[in-house]
Design a protein around this nucleic acid. Structure first.
Length: 275
DNA sequence: TGCCAGGAAGCCG
DNA sequence: CGGCTTCATGGC
C-alpha cells in the first residue's frame, strides 16, 4: 500500500519519542510492532511511504494508526508563516511527524516505564517485558519472530521479582497496579478517549506512578487528545532557555500536543541526541 | 565517578 | 503550594 502525503516521514516519527517499537531495519526501511502485528514500512520518497500490507489491513488498522485522515500541513504551514522563530525552525525540521493512534494500554505502561529513563533504555525495557509477558508470533511475510505487547491481565498478574529481573527498577509496583486498574475497570480507555483531556489527566493521575508528565503523554499518544502538552526535561530546557518561561501553549489551543512534538524533536536534534 | 535520562512520591516548611 | 531527597538502572 503506497501512501502519498507531504507530512509523513518514517524517520521523524520513529525518532520523535512517541513510539518505542518502530525501528530501522535498513536504509529508509522500518519495522513496527503494534496491534499484535509486525509490519515493514519504507520511505520511497520525501512524500511517499510504502506500507507492506494489504488493503484490508490498511483500511482496518494502519490508516487509523498513522492518523492519515488528519491534515498536519496546515499546522506546519501556519508555524512556518508565524512570528515564532523557534517554532518556524522546529516545524520545518519535523514537518513529517504525525501523532500516532497507539494502543492506550501500551502507552499507559510504556510511559510509566519511561520515567527517569532515556529512550534507548525505555525501548530495551519494553522489548524485555514483551518477551516475557507478550505472545510470541511469526510474521508470515518477513519470517520475523516478534513478541506482542503484554495484555493488562498478564501484567496485572506479573510478579515483582520478575519485573525486577527485567530491570524495570522501582516501577515494578506501578506497572502491576496500573494494569490491575485496567482489569478491574477503574481505568476505562473508551471513557478516557471520550472525555476531555483535562478530565483524562485528572483520572490518570489517581494511579500510583503517574504524575502530570506521564498523564499528558498517555493522553496525547494513547487517547489522542492532541491538546495535551507533556513537559519533560527537554521541554523544560526549551521553555526556560528559548522562551524565558513565557511560552503560552494556549496560542495553539486544541493542537498544542502536535506543536510540542515539533519542539521536542527539534531540541533533541540541536543537542545531537538524534540524527 | 558523578551526572543524566520523555519523573513521581514522600516529606518538610 | 514550592523545594529537596530518594527511588533502580544503564550509558557516558
Amino acid at each position: 500500500m503506497r501512501i502519498n502525503n507531504k507530512n509523513f516521514n518514517l524517520k521523524q516519527i520513529a525518532d520523535s519519542g512517541q513510539c518505542f517499537r518502530m525501528n530501522p531495519i535498513s536504509d529508509n526501511k522500518y519495522g513496527l510492532i503494534a496491534f499484535g502485528r509486525y509490519i515493514e514500512l519504507e520511505q520511497i520518497e520525501e512524500d511517499i511511504v510504502e506500507i507492506n500490507c494489504n488493503n484490508e489491513d490498511y483500511v482496518g488498522i494502519w490508516k487509523n494508526y498513522f492518523d492519515i485522515d488528519y491534515d498536519y500541513g496546515w499546522i506546519v504551514d501556519s508555524l512556518k508563516e508565524g512570528r515564532d522563530e523557534f517554532l518556524k525552525e522546529a516545524a520545518t525540521w519535523g514537518s513529517g511527524i504525525r501523532i500516532l493512534r497507539q494502543e492506550p494500554f501500551e502507552m499507559l505502561i510504556s510511559f510509566i516505564i519511561s520515567q527517569n529513563k532515556n529512550i534507548p533504555s525505555i525501548k530495551a525495557c519494553i522489548e524485555r517485558i514483551s518477551k516475557v509477558y507478550g505472545d510470541k508470533k511469526k510474521d508470515d511475510k518477513s519470517g520475523i519472530i516478534f513478541y506482542t505487547f503484554p495484555s493488562p491481565e498478564k501484567l496485572a498478574h506479573a510478579k515483582k521479582e520478575v519485573l525486577r529481573e527485567l530491570k524495570l527498577g522501582y516501577r515494578d509496583e506501578y506497572i502491576i497496579g496500573a494494569s490491575r486498574s485496567v482489569v478491574d475497570g477503574e481505568l476505562d480507555f473508551e471513557y478516557l478517549k471520550k472525555c476531555s483531556h483535562e478530565e483524562a489527566v485528572s483520572i490518570l493521575k489517581n494511579i500510583r506512578g503517574i504524575g502530570d508528565k506521564v498523564a499528558n503523554c498517555i493522553s496525547l499518544f494513547g487517547l489522542h487528545h492532541i491538546e495535551a502538552f507533556p513537559i519533560d526535561v527537554w521541554m523544560k530546557r526549551i521553555l526556560n532557555d528559548v522562551y524565558d518561561n513565557k511560552f503560552d501553549p494556549s496560542l495553539y489551543h486544541g493542537y498544542a500536543g502536535i506543536v510540542q512534538q515539533y519542539m521536542f524533536y527539534y531540541i533533541r536534534h540541536i543537542n545531537g541526541v538524534i540524527g
